[in-house]
Structures are given as C-alpha cells and as structure tokens.
Amino acid sequence: MTQAQNIPVTIVGGYLGSGKTTLINNLLRHADGKKLAILVNEFGELPIDADLIEAEEGDVISLSGGCVCCSYGNDLTSAVMDVAQMQPTPDHIVLEASGVALPGAIASSLSLLNNCSLDGIVVLADAETVKSKSTDKYMSDTIMRQLTDADIVLLNKIDLVASEDLHATREWLNGCSNNASIIETKHSTAPIAVVLQDFERQSQPLDSGAPQHVDQFHTYKLDMEKSVDPKHFAEELIANTPGIVRAKGFVRDKSGDLKTVQIVGKRFAISESPDNVECGMVVITVQP
C-alpha cells in the first residue's frame, strides 16, 4: 500500500435493550484474528467473558486476540482519537452509541478525523418494542432519528413476536428508514461481514455462529473487467440490486485508475485504491 489506510469505524446504534451489547459480544467472539477496538459508553453493560480479558487498566480492557475495549463516557471524539493512535493499530473500530445518541451526528463528527472513515451505521431495533417505543412521549423523535440514520437495521428478537406482527413491524420500518437494508435477526446474530465491511472475508461463506440465519444472505462476485464511472456504477448497483446490504471491491475508472468502491445500504464511498489489487466487486444481498 502506498499510504496508511484510514481505520474503518462502524457505529452500532439503537435504543436500550435492542441488543447492541449482544451484537458486540458476537463480534468479539467471531473476530477471528481481526484486531477490533470496541468503544462503549460504559463498561458495566458489556459482560465480557473473564477468560477473554488479558489486562484491565482504567478505561481500557485488553482482550486476547488483539482486541481492546474502551469506555468513552462523555467524550466520544477523544476516545476515538486515542484508539486510532493505539499500537498495534486496530483493524476496525466498533463504536457502540448510547441508547439515546443519534448515530448520524456521530458519523458527521467522525468525518472530521483524519485517520478514520465511516464504514456504516448499524442500528438495532427490538422487534417486540420498537414500534410502540416510537410513539413514546419523550423518546419518539430520538428513535425515529436513529432509524433514519441507519444504513443497516437489524430487526432483532424476531423469535419473540408472532409472524403477522413481525410483518407489520417490518412494513412500518420500511416506511421510516428508507435508506436502510433491513435484516431480521435473533440474539443479534448477524454475520460479521455484514456488520463490518471486510473485503477479504466476503468471498468466503458467511459465518455468524448461527447457521439458520446465513440462508437469508446471498454473496456473489462481479468481475468488473470493463472500465466504469465509479459513481454511476455504485448508484446503478444500489438501484438495481434488491436487498443489497454491502458491497466492496475495486474498479477501473475511465482514465484507467483503480478506485475502491464501498457500499453499505444505500450509501456508497469511492476512494483511491491500494496498489496491487485486482478488479472485482463482492456483493452481499439479503432476501427481502
């Protein structure tokens, strides 16, 4: 690579009790050598298995396998800056927003940090309660803003609701989070490659530790032999791929330069590509 790559940051949002902590534990359990830096609002709610913890010092817990977990309290930006400076550099930062935070606002702030880039906003919604919570006297607008900010909504705890209710909730979600891909989950078990953009792994079978859910995803590769206008290509891919969740790869633009194209939900980003890569895109879709 010719330049230091930005560290991808995934924001995990959603109201209290939607399953954020469970999702983060799942990610840690399936990190598989990837050095994840997890930022949480407070430690108390992250029940990390004691045998995973190697050291604990102040606001930082070091986990086996190179992952770290930090609490940020009221100063999220500083915490992200600190984590991005850690040695060894984390492969990926996962930022658990507080239950009342607006993930879109956090994403805006991250855009000002030089060595980080937004990988996506994943918002969990509790299938049992999200619809009624969305009319809460105090929290209504906060919950709606969280859902609107999402690139991917994990509609979680689907095992706790009747199928007709689930259908109604899903229809309702479609209406209020028009930019997001909606994925149904139990116990927050979405595959790591869906939650975190991970090019190396996307060509492999998805593993979430919960095989029953892998069925809903479909992964395929586009060769991308012809040169394209990357922006136009990304827009078309999003518009013409029902259920697109994520896509990442390299394309050659009209002037012959290689570009990285990343898609999450309806959002895409185009950047300079690293050296020595081959053209091609990996696309993950979810069955609608």
Binding site: D75, L76, M81
Partner: peptide
C-alpha cells in the same frame, strides 16, 4: 463539542 475536540487539542485546551 464533537467538532471542537479534534482541533481543541492543538490549541492548548485540555480535553477534559
């Protein structure tokens, strides 16, 4: 505050 912090550290304002 989210915007001030990344620049604030360079102008001598303590983080906390």
């Amino acid at each position: 505050p989210d915007v001030m912090t990344p620049v604030g550290v360079h102008v001598g304002f303590d983080r906390d």
